[in-house]
């Protein structure tokens, strides 16, 4: 399967502050990849490098085989871009903006755009500047769908949206992506929204890729474990994440199964006889991997 995004040895600093060093990842064709990370861990930096609006200190990022900072017009036609906050040309109305963009994209399909607008009961002459944030998000999404790109880069699509609009966005996008076999690279502050959308999770932390796995693996294999805290409990094993003592109970996260965890703990602390296992949502798994703080 070919790669639609390839980031090789990306290194970036803001002044003295290192965002990441030698970051490597790829996104395969036909996959929906979610970029997750806490604030300040390099999500925006990565998106900006990918969109070609930031030159990394070193390393390269390729979109559809071309360097992201120097995309040819033909490749730009194949990439749909959603800018954080669903920014669009707000001085246009619904019809004007459709007319404007249609001139640039040979595969332009206005039907999905107008279908979405009629679903939201937005009048064709309504100005974008006079719309709510939720309506603007649907305009931005509708335009990307009409563009019919191979690769969609969606930066923080959930920003400023209420739950209804977020769900509408996700539902519409999921249907479209699956039907048309598109590749998507998406970020969101609301991780829960991505749970039923993304095929792969890419988590950034401590200036590196902490995890890049299928979401299904994360949801089925990554668990929270709780057990009564033994005296002088200490655990030093890379297979356990964010181990904490909470009100006399130890809470830890791991990809190991319950039996493996119990055996490991019992070897260290024979008095521990049982542990509780909890299934996690994507958001809980993210917290389990990166910590609360």
């Amino acid at each position: 399967m070919s790669n639609v995004i390839e980031c090789k040895n990306l290194t970036h600093y803001y002044g003295e502050r290192c965002i990441y060093e030698n970051l490597n990842f790829t996104v395969q064709k036909g996959r929906v990849t979610g970029l997750l990370g806490k604030n300040g861990k390099g999500k925006n930096t990565t998106i900006n490098i990918m969109n070609g609006y930031l030159q990394p200190k070193s390393g390269n990022c390729f979109l559809l085989g071309e360097p992201s900072h120097n995309l040819s017009p033909e490749t730009k036609q194949r990439i749909g871009l959603l800018i954080e906050g669903h920014v669009q040309y707000s001085f246009f109305d619904i019809e004007q903006i459709e007319k404007f963009y249609s001139a640039f994209y040979p595969k332009w399909k206005k039907e999905p755009y107008y279908e979405l607008m009629s679903k939201l009961k937005i009048a064709p002459k309504q100005k974008i500047s006079k719309m709510s944030c939720g309506q603007r998000s649907q305009v931005a999404l509708g335009l990307i769908l009409a563009q019919d790109p191979e690769l969609l880069i969606l930066d923080d699509f959930s920003m400023g949206l209420d739950p209804g609009y977020r769900m509408l966005f996700v539902d519409y996008l999921r249907e479209y992506v699956k039907a048309e076999n598109k590749s998507v690279f998406i970020t969101s502050h609301i991780i829960q929204d991505l749970e039923h959308l993304v095929d792969d999770c890419l988590i950034l932390d401590y200036g590196k890729v902490l995890l890049h796995k299928p979401t299904s693996d994360l949801l089925t294999k990554f668990k929270r474990y709780r057990f009564k805290a033994p005296k002088n409990f200490k655990i030093q094993n890379e297979q356990f994440y964010n181990t904490e003592l909470i009100k006399g109970m130890i809470e830890t996260y791991s990809f190991l199964n319950k039996k493996e965890v119990l055996n490991y703990i019992k070897d260290l602390y024979p008095e521990i006889e049982t542990i509780d296992e909890y299934k996690l949502t994507l958001e809980e798994a993210f917290i389990g991997l990166t910590g609360k703080y």
């Binding site: 969109n51 070609g52 017009p73 730009k76 800018i83 920014v87 669009q88 040309y89 707000s90």
Partner: peptide
């Protein structure tokens, strides 16, 4: 002003032209 507001210039520069 509309171009620099919310960095809308990014949209313009992403149009499929040089």
């Amino acid at each position: 002003i509309p171009e620099i507001n919310n960095k809308r210039l990014k949209l313009s520069l992403h149009l499929p032209l040089k």
